[in-house]
């Protein structure tokens, strides 16, 4: 890439990092990046990942985003995207999160996979992913956007680490062979009121399809997924905005449940 593009990538990365650190959302970064360049968007994400790793944050896995047909249509894309998970983004089952810990927070229910083997072969298949998976967990992803008003297109969200915030994992590991991850029902409730429904099929047809896409993409990129990594495969139903006082529970049939509550600023 030319120097000028390089500079805009660093500038976009700086904007997002500053928003993260100050809690003040920034303008869309698409305006300064080459139009609809996914390459530039991932370059921004990578600059910040490298920055955070140098600051001591530990990468513990990855997440897939844009795994629903409806959301892909809304953003005018035909593929998912990815972001990285840092250890400090993990939240325990039932924990309390300040709404200010994630900018403009929304929640979605997902299937998480934890690997027991590296996926470092070229072009991993679903057989490789199944063999490498230790267990699945129910998860709530608390997505957020460093960009003002969630005014994002595909470039913005990729640059912004796939709009990741925090993630909550349930404590009930299940073996894949005991699960029907395509037809598993999902319901998410806020204080007993249902706010989202779905099923495994909503995530690229099957959550393992999303896992394969991630495994291939990371293998191609030269940083294959490794034993111990957590993979968030993508939402099983529509996301829902949260406010202080909300108590969220997600149940995925066969996988169990996971919960998180939201409070005012701590």
């Amino acid at each position: 890439m030319s120097n000028m593009i390089n500079e805009t990538i660093l500038e976009a990365a700086q904007m997002l990092r500053q928003a993260h650190e100050t809690g003040i959302a920034c303008e869309p970064v698409r305006d300064i990046l080459p139009a609809l360049s996914l390459e530039a968007a991932y370059a921004v994400q990578q600059v910040n990942t490298r920055h955070w790793v140098e600051q001591g944050r530990r990468v513990v896995g990855c997440k897939a985003g844009l795994t629903s047909k409806t959301v892909q249509q809304q953003l005018g894309v035909d593929q998912p995207d990815f972001g990285v998970l840092f250890a400090d983004m993990f939240v325990g089952d039932g924990a309390d999160v300040a709404v200010t810990d994630v900018m403009q927070p929304k929640v979605e229910a997902e299937v998480a996979l934890v690997l027991e083997r590296d996926l470092d072969m070229p072009q991993p298949t679903v057989a490789d992913v199944i063999s490498a998976t230790a267990y699945a967990l129910p998860a709530i992803e608390i997505v957020g956007s460093r960009i003002h008003n969630w005014d994002i297109n595909i470039v913005d969200t990729i640059a912004d680490n796939a709009s990741s915030g925090l993630y909550v994992l349930g404590n009930s590991p299940q073996k894949l062979e005991q699960l029907d991850l395509r037809l598993c029902g999902m319901v998410m409730e806020c204080r007993g009121e249902q706010i989202s429904y779905g099923a495994g099929q909503a995530c690229l047809g099957h959550p393992l399809n999303a896992a394969v896409w991630l495994a291939r993409t990371f293998a191609e990129g030269g940083t294959p997924l490794k034993a111990g990594d957590t993979i968030l495969t993508g939402a099983l139903g529509p996301m829902a905005a949260v406010t202080p006082g909300d108590r969220i529970e997600a149940r995925i049939n066969g996988l169990g449940s996971v919960r998180v509550s939201f409070s005012e600023e701590k």
Partner: peptide
Amino acid sequence: GNLGMVMEFDGAPVQIGSSAAILG
């Protein structure tokens, strides 16, 4: 209480939900 339900037209999913949507 929470069965995944996928309705297809000609094999392509058109509605995806859960039986939980029926009164919980």
